[in-house]
Design a protein around this nucleic acid. Sequence first.
DNA 1: CTGCAAGTTGAAGTTCACTTCAGCTCAAGC
DNA 2: GCTTGAGCTGAAGTGAACTTCAACTTGCAG
Lengths: 147, 147
Amino acid sequence: MESLTIGELAVRSGVAASALRFYEREGLIHASRTGGNQRRYDRAELRRVAFIKIAQQVGVSLDEIREALASLPENRTPTKGDWSRLSARWRHRLEERISVLERLRDQLTGCIGCGCLSLQRCKLVNPSDRLAGRGAGPQMVLNPPGD
Amino acid sequence: MESLTIGELAVRSGVAASALRFYEREGLIHASRTGGNQRRYDRAELRRVAFIKIAQQVGVSLDEIREALASLPENRTPTKGDWSRLSARWRHRLEERISVLERLRDQLTGCIGCGCLSLQRCKLVNPSDRLAGRGAGPQMVLNPPGD
DNA sequence: CTGCAAGTTGAAGTTCACTTCAGCTCAAGC
DNA sequence: GCTTGAGCTGAAGTGAACTTCAACTTGCAG
């Protein structure tokens, strides 16, 4: 068994066949064809699909994922090093996302103490009424001054 | 200034007026009306909007947010205690979300080391081919056995 | 009291990420 | 060689979360 049918890739990746066809149309993955026009996937495509799923978890759009995948070499199967570089890129994104959520958690904990969630009164959630911060909303949480 | 116009609420909350009207149609926020049919928001609505924004950051759908907000008292302005209870609920969600992402980060770090991201070969990302785990895909990351 | 920015409505449009459908063809087991 | 499940295509549909539009009304500043 050298290559996978779309059904096999679907089962092994946990992504619906219709989504795999969609990803192909969108240029995220590639498939060769049999004489009868059926898709056959190289095992390397499993990594691409895994990468797509993980990136989506991190909150990256398919557009950005495509862009990232485009940086992989076309002419050869990506090496460990290729994947490492991509992973490192997402890792940074991931850490940013985590720190937003942690900040949110910490501030929410503070607000559980004071019972507030006000955009207007709670300094933790939104200092923008006092601080002449540009932009409205819970700035402290979503765009901390430390950035 | 006792109540806010939709424009004022939009500026102070950082949510577009069209979105505020949408939220009202969806039963997430409420407004009283002037003689001329314009919306006037009680300051307490700012908290609701803040809550909506924060919950969305945590990845909660508007449906679920509506459900949560429905648990607030109808007849009086929510107290600190009311908001505390709701916040505590989301805090739990938030911590789950954070731990998914942290797990992802840790495993991605591991994979940067080995250069892999395979659904098939990397035990860290996906043991489902060896372990008779139900469900395909990167199970270790998305649904860790520890749950 | 007038001008004009800000507000109102319902309906339709948008983007994202897919799924579903209809009408076919392919391929593997009996 | 026939049946049956798996696969193919393009087009249309879905749902979430809004935005835009057109046509009209309100309300405050001067």
